[in-house]
C-alpha cells in the first residue's frame, strides 16, 4: 500500500465521471415499463473500484458507455473494457469483476459477454477466452483469495 514501486502505472490519465442519471417523469410513473438500457448497465459497472488505484473504472476510462451494448428483448449484454496499459496484469481481474457484478445485478435471463476492447491488450485473446468460459469463471470464484479481491472491487468505497 505504501510503496510506490509496486504500482504498474502510478500516474494514470483521469477521466471525468458522468453525473447521476437524470430522473425522468416516466420513471416515476407507476404504469410505464422502463426497459433496461445501455446507461443502466453502464451505471452498474462504472463505480467498480480499480484493484490498484482508489479510483473507479469509469475515472480510468476502462469502461465507457459507448462500449456497453444491451438488448433487453433478447436478454443479451455485451461489455468491452479497455485496460489502461497494454501489458496490464490486472486485465483478467478487472474483467472478472465486471462479469461478477453483472451476474449479481442482472436478472437470470441475461447472457453476459465481457471482453477486452479489440487491440488494446497484449494477451487479449487469452483473457477473453478465460472470461467467456463459464466453468473457469466459476472455478475462479471458488478461489477465496481471488474472490476477496473481486469483492473489494465491488464494495462501495468507505473512507
Amino acid at each position: 500500500m505504501s510503496a510506490g514501486s509496486r504500482l504498474e502505472n502510478a500516474n494514470p490519465v483521469i477521466f471525468q465521471r458522468s453525473g447521476e442519471r437524470l430522473l425522468t417523469a416516466s420513471e416515476e410513473d407507476e404504469d410505464v415499463h422502463d426497459p433496461i438500457d445501455d446507461r443502466e448497465i453502464f451505471d452498474l459497472i462504472r463505480s467498480i473500484n480499480d484493484p490498484e488505484h482508489p479510483l473507479s473504472l469509469e475515472e480510468l476510462n476502462v469502461v465507457e458507455q459507448v462500449r456497453v451494448k444491451v438488448n433487453d428483448a433478447e436478454s443479451t449484454v455485451s461489455v468491452e473494457f479497455t485496460p489502461t496499459i497494454p501489458h496490464c496484469s490486472m486485465a483478467t481481474l478487472i474483467g472478472l469483476s465486471i462479469k461478477v457484478k453483472l451476474l449479481r445485478a442482472l436478472p437470470d435471463r441475461f447472457k453476459t459477454d465481457v471482453h477486452i476492447t479489440p487491440g488494446t491488450h497484449a494477451s487479449e485473446e487469452a483473457v477473453n477466452k478465460q472470461l467467456a468460459d463459464k466453468e473457469r469463471v466459476a472455478a475462479a470464484l471458488e478461489n477465496s483469495s481471488l474472490l476477496e479481491v473481486v469483492n473489494q472491487c465491488l464494495s462501495t468505497r468507505k473512507i
Binding site: L23, E27, E28, E30, V32, H33, D34, I36, E40, D43, L44, K101, R104, A105, L106, P107, R109, L154, T156
Partner: peptide
C-alpha cells in the same frame, strides 16, 4: 432485479450487492 421500474431495479441491485 427484473422489475419494470428502473428505480426499483437500482435499489434491488444495491441491496443484493451488499447481501452478496
Amino acid at each position: 432485479l427484473d422489475d419494470k421500474k428502473r428505480l426499483v431495479r437500482s435499489e434491488a441491485v444495491q441491496a443484493r450487492g451488499e447481501w452478496f
